[in-house]
Every structure is written in C-alpha cells, then in structure tokens.
Design a protein around this nucleic acid. Sequence first.
RNA 1: CGGGUCGUGGCGCAGCUUGGUAGCGCACUCGCCUUGGGAGCGAGGGGCCGCCGGUUCGAAUCCGGCCGACCCGACCA
Length: 577
Amino acid sequence: MLLRMSTLLLKTLREEPADAEVPSHRLLLRAGFIRRAAPGGYTWLPLGKLVLDRVTAVVREEMAAAGGQEVSFPSLLPRDPYEVSGRWTEYGDDIFTLTDRRGAEHLLAPTHEEMFTLLVQDMTGSYRDFPLVLFQVQTKFRDEARPRGGLLRGREFLMKDAYSFDLSDDGLAEAYQRMRTAYRKVFARLGLEHTIVSAVSGAMGGSASEEFLATSEVGEDTFVGCTSCSYAANTEAVTTPAPVVAETPGVPLVVHDTPDTPTIASLVEHANSHRLGGRDDWTAADTLKNVVVTVHHPGREPELLAIGVPGDREVDLKRLDAALAPATATLFDDFASRPDLVKGYIGPQGIGIRYLADPRVATGTAWLTGANEPGRHATGVVAGRDFTPDGTIEAAEVRAGDPCPACDGGELTIRRGIEIGHIFQLGRRYTDAFKVDVLGADGKPVRPTMGSYGIGLSRAVAAIAEQHHDDRGLLWPSSVAPADVHVVAAGKDGQVEAALTLGATLARAGLRVLVDDRPNVSAGVKFTDAELIGVPRAVVVGRRLAEGYVELRDRRSGTRQEVPLVDIAGVITTAVG
RNA sequence: CGGGUCGUGGCGCAGCUUGGUAGCGCACUCGCCUUGGGAGCGAGGGGCCGCCGGUUCGAAUCCGGCCGACCCGACCA
C-alpha cells in the first residue's frame, strides 16, 4: 500500500475544534480521520477508515479463530420480531422507528438478537447443528439522549456482535469462556489496556455478565478495583460487607427536640452542640438517612419505598435501579400528600411503607435518626430492636477506601473506563420468545441457550486514541496504524522524487506506506502533521540524502537515527516484523 | 428530560451593549521568493451572520418562537 499525501483527502487542522472536548475526538478531527456529519454521526475519512478497517480485521480474525462464522443482517428491520421479543416497547425512545409507504412499521436495529435467533430457528433442526457461534459486523442505531465525545457515544456506530447457541448450560459456559479468551486477545492486539469487571445482568437475566472497560479518565463507566486483590466490578455490582455486631448495645431510644435540622449537616451540628445522648462526637456516619423513592414496576402501580443509608453517604440512583431491576426508581417529592412522611425527620421506627436498609445498618447497630415528627430526632435507635427493615439493599454510593468484598484488608479504588466489550450468558430469553426447539439425540426437543458478545468497533478506535496520544498528536499501535511507515520528503523538491522511490520500494517489501510528497509544503509543516497523524515510524528523506543517508524516527519514543538509504527497507521490515 | 455555555466562509474567532448591509487569523487559488520544525511579499475566490416570525425606512445586531452543538446531571447496550 502506498498513499501519497499530495493526493490524499486529508486536511489537518491547526486549531482545536471548539466543539470537541475529549482528547480522542479532538485529535481524530484535527488529524483528519473523521468529520462530523450528523448529530452523533461521523464520516470516516481515508485515514480513519484505514484504522477502523484494521481494528475490524483484528476482531474478525479472533472471532474466526474462536469458531465464529460471519453473517450480515440488514439494519432496516420489520417491527414484528421485536414485538415478539417485547423489545419494541422495552427499548422505547431509544430505537429509531419508521413507517414505509404501506404503513408498515420498521426499525433501525439497535442490536440483532432477534434476527440471529430467527436465523438459527430457520436453519437448524437437529442437535447435530450445535454448538454454533455466529457474528456480524454491522452499523447499529440508537436514539441516544445525549451523544458525546465524538465516536465514544454516537447514534450510529459500528459494532461486532456475536451469539453462541448451545444445547446445554455447560456448553454455554464453555462458549462464554472461549469468547472471553478471544476478547482478551483482541484487546491485547489492539493495544487497549483494560479491566474486566463483573456487571449486573439486569432485566436481561442470565447468570454471568462481564464488561471490558478500557481505562480512561473520559470513560462513562465507573468501576472499582481493589488495592490488594484482583477484584474489579462495576459500581452497580459492588457488594457491601455487613459489620458484625457482637451484642445489641444497651443504649435506650430517646427522642430529642431538634428544631431546624432537616439536613444531615444541620443535625450533626445540633447533636454535638446539645450533647445529644451525652456525646459531642457525632459524625454524619452515626446518623441514619432515610430517602423515600417511588418505585415503578413495569405494568404495576408505583410503590413508595424508603431506603436507609448511613448519613455520610448519598443514595446512588444507578445502584438503586440496578438493585431494583427491572423496576426503576425516582426520588419522591410529593410530601404534601403523605403527612406521615415528615421530610427531613423520617425514621424507620414504625414507618408505614416498605423499608430497605443498607447492609451497614446491621442488626444491633444504633443510630441517630428521624423521629417521624417535625423538628424531632431520636438517638439510640437500634436495628432489630426498634425497627426491622424489610430487607437490605445495595444503593448507597461506593467510595474509594471502602472495604473490598472479595478479600480481607483490601480497599476499593474508583476508576473510570470506556466500555469496549460486553459478554454475557443470555440464556433462553430469545429462544423461548421464538419457541426455538431442535431435535435432541434422544428424539426429544431441546431448546438452545444463548450467549451474547459485543465489541464497539468505532468506539474502540476512540478508546485506542484516548490511550495512545501525547501533546503532539496520535500514537497508533502498529496493529491498527493507518500505515507502517510515514516517509517525509524534507527539503527541496528533489527529495520528493527520492521519497516516492523509497516509498515504492517499501511498499514492494509489503509495508503500508504513507508518503508526504506535498510540493511547496515546508519541512516543519510535514513534521508536525506526521506527529499529529501518529504513524509509528517516519523516514525523513532530507539533507543527508546526497550522502546516502535518511533519518529513521520513532514516533512514540522520539528517537532518531541516521540510516544508509540502501539499508532502510531492511531495517524497517525487521522492526515491523 | 433538567441546568449551563454557544451558533457569523472549511477551521478558530471579532463585530451585537449603542441597528446603516460583514471583518480578522488559519486554510484555499495565482505569482515571486523560500525549503530540517506550523516562512515572507503581492494579488484573489469564498459567507440568505442556525431557522421562522416580529419591530423598523433599514436587523448579524433589538423582541418572540423553534432548531442545533458542546459541557454537567438524568437516561442508556
């Protein structure tokens, strides 16, 4: 491959695009890899398309190596299958829907579980057809409420989705592990540093679910790691160890007048200045905060629910939703309609609605909490004696320094990541929905079980750019770089011919070559553009050409060496491998 | 969906307060010059000032509505 910059559709931008905030978005725009074409939609320019195709090629190779067979479905699909699976309504506003000239409804597929399931139903009939792994590379559409970060979250994006079909749960577990291993290889080849975190399977059901998060400050997903063991999990999936209480404390429950203390901060201040319970060392962690939410169960009446958490922690609505799935929760604010719920002074004692407590509110722990009367709180409110929660719930925020649930003494750290892959054991949700049965060895019908495995390909390009750049520009890993070598003609136009000749030689040696043969462009511009574009190595054909030397530069390390022109092809071929 | 910032040639911005028919830098075209770190000089081309309506003799500028972008939050495979 030989690309000439004199004819390449490329325009680097000297100035920062005003609309781009995250580094990958800025650099991909500036270096001429992508251009915004629509809200949440991007045009891939020649250099960007090369990278996207190389990322895709790596994924295809590993999918094939894991036994996957590639197919391709349309993106424009009829409503029917999605009605059968229940997702037409479940997805709601997140899918793009349209009506054809006959009035029939269609959607632009946000994902393709239904179609894969129907294909397998059509084309299999016997246990001999299994196990089976199918995948495709296809554009997906989602009407995201807020596209952001360029390629990080678009309304149209490229995704590799794969599905395994097995006749037994053991088979599914094996397929899952095989795919998990394949994903590790994929991301290693792409140069993506990542963490595999346990995720909640949510409404989808299924027994195992893991996300591959590329570590990045601009990532949208928060996850925790442990300082002393290998534990890693999505914050939604973190569990809180309950404290062990030896015996119920003998403190009595005492109600105090605490006027004008509707917040935890004001309550703690009042408690200390008035020495409630004979103490002046109260902290927010000694208080029990009770938050009322409205729980929306699908297809049922909303329910009021109170959540009890230590007063120094907020309720994390994402964790709450995950804990309540498939129901969702919103903060309750219509206190006028419930005079029994005294805003700012709610306590769990005799509360008239369902009450779930944080695991830290263990039996035997004593709290400072509301007395369910305006301007009054109570000390010595003991769990298991003065109130008994209807259960525990993981809804309190997770903080750095919290104890690790998987080991002794480890502390949690909080990090952010870009979700580049998700694998989970889907089970029989879709084969049940479409009543897929195949004939077993014993002549009886068997219902296949599925696994689902996705990689965001366009998002992976952005994630690689996030992890591989410096203040000068992009730093592509060799595996996905738009070229293996960037030949720069520096100096008078005589060097352009030499650069093109060298480029052709390198291309014949099997290298992917980008030659900067632009006439009347100064060497400085070519150098800065080369650094912005981020091809791993550059060969400068310049002032020492007459002596038979060119300069070899490594983009990442910045090292430079003079190499005889006659040796350069061999040196680079060896380096590229 | 809430809060904030902002829409003026391809990109980055000024002009708007105080209405008078659009400007700067980069990029682009031509010429000269220059060529190892975003050169210089000269001459050019390119914009229904986001859209719709209103006020006015006259609107980029004032008023109303809408649309869009970006950031924070909500939501989300």
